[in-house]
Design a protein around this nucleic acid. Structure first.
Lengths: 338, 338
DNA sequence: GTGAAAGCGCTAACAT
DNA sequence: ATGTTAGCGCTTTCAC
C-alpha cells in the first residue's frame, strides 16, 4: 500500500494542507517546513495520488486516442508525435488500437467517458451512426487526425486530399504518362478516399486525358491490397505506364507485384505513393510519394485539441496542412520508345 | 458537466445505493427498481466515474507501458497484442513512447506511480541505476517484454537469444557459408545484444570456422545503422558471403546497402534478419529471419503480469518463448564458383 | 430489499 | 503562514 499525504504530514509534523501546499508549489510555506515536508516525501517515496487529485480538481489530464492500426507506420508516426505533444503539455494518453473493429471503438469510447478523458483524438473515419451519436452525447471535445469522416459535425486536421491527389497525378502527367492507374482506398463513408479519387480524375480530364475505367481499382490502403489490385491492373490488355496509389503501403504492394511479374519500377511502370511514411526510404527503388506532414499533423492535432480543452477555443473548420511531393526513384519520364 | 450517480438516483426516485447496486450487478434489487434505474441511466447518458470508483475500490485497472520506439514495426506489433490482451481483461493502457530518452522514462515511471497503475510493462533494456532503484522503490509489479536488462532482479518474456543467434548462424553455415558477417546491436547493458553475439561466435567456432574480427560490426538495431555498418563490411578486402543482422530493420538496411553498391542479395551476399517483423514480407527479395513469436510475446507478457497483479503469482524466472527460423529468399547456398 | 452515512486521498475555502 | 473542515463521486458497512 502506497503512502498517503497523511503519512507525509505525520512524519513531517505538519498538517496535510501544508504538505498539499508544498506539493503544489504554493508560496506561503516557510522554508524550514518546506524542507521537512520534502524530506518526508523523499523518505516515504511518496507520490500524490492522481486519482484523488483528479476527483477533487475535476481534471484528469487524460487524452483518449483511437488508432485504427498501430502497426501501420503512418499511424504509429502520428501517434508518436501526438504522444510527444501530450507529454510536453503534461497530458497522458490512453491509447486504443481498434484493429478496424467497430465494436471495440464503441467500447473504448465508453471507457474514455468513464475515465473522464478531457479530449479524444480519432484517426479512424469509418464511423457509423451509432458512434456518431455516442460521440455527440458524450460532450467531450473530439478531433479527427489525418482522416475526415463524412459530414460537417466534426473537425479534422488533414491535408487537402483533393489537391494532393490532383498534384500527384499532374506530376505523373508531367512526366509524359497518360495511362495512369489508380489504386484507391475504401470509398464507403470515406471523404479522403473520395477526394483523392476526384483529384485523380480531374487532373486527367483537365489535361485532356481520357479516364480508363479498367485502370481504376479500389482496396483498403494496405500493402496486400496494393499487391492484389496491381495484379488486376497488370491483367488488362493495355496496362498503365504509371500508377498512383493512395497510400505508401499500397504503393509498396504494387511495386512488389510489378517486380514479381517480371517488370521493373520505374522503367516499365512508375509508382507514386501517398503519405510519406518511413517506407519511402526503405524500398528499392525508393518511393516517390505525395507526403503528408505527419509529424506536424500530430503536433497540430494536439495543439488544437488542447486549445479547446483548456481555453474553450472550438475550431470552426478543418485545419488544412500543406502536402508536399517528394520525388524519389520510383517515378520516371515515360520512355518515348512507344 | 457529466451526470453523477446522485442525478440518476433522483431521476429514478431511489437512493444512490440502489443505483450503485444496479451498476455493479448485485442481486438484491427488485426488478421494477432495476428497470427505473436503467432507464434513468439511459436518459442521462450516465457513465460511472472511473476516477471515483478507483479511489474507493483502490483499483485502477490501468497498466503502464514503456515503449522505446513506437514507430518500429517490431514494438508496434508487440504493443498491439498487449493492447488486445489488456482489452480482453478489462485493463487499459497508459502508453509512453520514450524515443530512447531516459529522462522521459524516469518522468513516466513517476506518472505511472501517481496514476496508481497496477502493473508496468517495459520494452526497453537500457535501464540505469537510477531507473533500477526507482522501479524497485515503487513496489509495482514490473515485467520486461522482448528485452532483458542486465542482472537478475527483473523478469523478462523473451526468446533464448543465444540459441536463436546460434541457430541462425548455423543455418548460414549449413548453406555453405564460412565468411559470415555479424551486424550486432548495442552491447552496453544489453543482455540480448551480448547473447546474440555469443551465439553467433559459438556457432562459428563449433563448426571450426575462424572468427574474423573485421566481419563484426555493432550498431543500434535500426535500418540506418544496418546500412552504415554493412558499408563497412563491404570495405574489407574479403567481404562476407553472408550476413546475420540482429534485427530485421538492420537486415533491410544491409540489403539496401548491398544493392546500392551494385551487388545482389542473395546471389552475392545472403542476409539473415532477426525478429520476424512485417518487413520480412515487404522486401524484395523477401527476408529470411530468425523470428520471435511477437504476437504470443505480447499475450504472454500480459498474462504473466496480470497473474501477478490479480493473484500475486510472482514469476520466479524469465519466460522463454520459442524462436523459429523462417526461410525466405534472402539467403541461399553459397555459390561454389570460388 | 433498500437507504443513511462513513470514508477512499486529496484540494480549497475558511478560520486563525 | 498554518491548520480545520467540507466535499469531489463513488462503494460499502450497517441499520432498518
Amino acid at each position: 500500500m502506497q503512502p498517503k499525504i497523511k503519512d507525509v504530514a505525520r512524519l513531517a509534523g505538519v498538517s496535510v494542507t501544508t504538505v498539499s501546499r508544498v506539493l503544489n508549489g504554493e508560496k506561503y510555506v516557510k522554508d524550514d517546513l518546506k524542507q521537512k515536508v520534502t524530506l518526508a516525501i523523499q523518505e516515504l517515496g511518496y507520490a500524490p495520488s492522481h486519482i484523488a487529485r483528479s476527483l477533487v480538481r475535476n481534471k484528469t489530464n487524460l487524452i483518449g486516442v483511437i488508432v485504427p492500426d498501430i502497426t501501420s507506420s503512418f499511424y504509429a508516426t502520428i501517434l508518436s508525435s501526438i504522444e510527444e505533444a501530450a507529454s510536453e503539455n503534461d497530458y497522458n494518453l490512453l491509447v486504443c488500437n481498434i484493429s478496424e473493429n467497430i465494436d471495440k471503438e464503441h467500447k473504448y469510447l465508453n471507457v474514455f467517458q468513464e475515465m473522464r478523458v478531457e479530449g479524444i483524438i480519432i484517426m479512424h473515419e469509418k464511423i457509423n451512426e451509432d458512434i456518431r451519436n455516442l460521440i455527440q452525447k458524450m460532450k467531450i471535445p473530439v478531433i479527427f487526425s489525418s482522416v475526415k469522416p463524412m459530414g460537417q459535425e466534426f473537425v479534422s486536421v488533414i491535408v487537402d486530399d483533393y489537391k494532393a491527389a490532383y498534384d500527384a497525378t499532374a506530376y505523373l502527367i508531367g512526366l509524359g504518362h497518360e495511362a495512369i492507374g489508380f489504386l484507391g482506398g475504401d470509398m464507403r463513408d470515406i471523404t479522403s478516399g473520395q477526394n483523392r479519387y476526384s483529384g485523380y480524375r480531374n487532373a486527367l480530364t483537365d489535361s485532356g486525358i481520357k479516364i480508363i475505367h479498367e485502370h481504376i481499382r479500389f482496396g483498403d490502403y494496405k500493402v496486400k491490397s496494393g499487391y492484389e489490385q496491381m495484379k488486376e491492373l497488370l491483367r488488362v490488355k493495355q496496362p498503365p505506364t504509371a500508377v498512383f496509389a493512395v497510400s505508401d503501403d499500397m504503393a509498396v504492394g504494387a511495386m512488389n507485384c510489378i517486380r514479381d511479374n517480371g517488370l521493373r519500377v520505374p522503367e516499365d511502370i512508375s509508382v507514386m505513393g501517398f503519405d510519406g511514411s518511413q517506407l519511402t526510404e526503405l524500398t528499392r527503388p525508393t518511393l516517390t510519394s505525395m507526403e503528408q506532414p505527419i509529424h506536424e499533423m500530430g503536433k497540430v492535432t494536439m495543439k488544437v485539441l488542447l486549445g479547446q480543452v483548456e481555453n474553450g477555443d472550438v475550431p470552426t473548420s478543418d485545419i488544412i496542412l500543406e502536402h508536399r511531393l517528394v520525388a524519389r526513384e520510383s517515378c520516371k519520364a515515360r520512355s518515348t520508345s512507344t
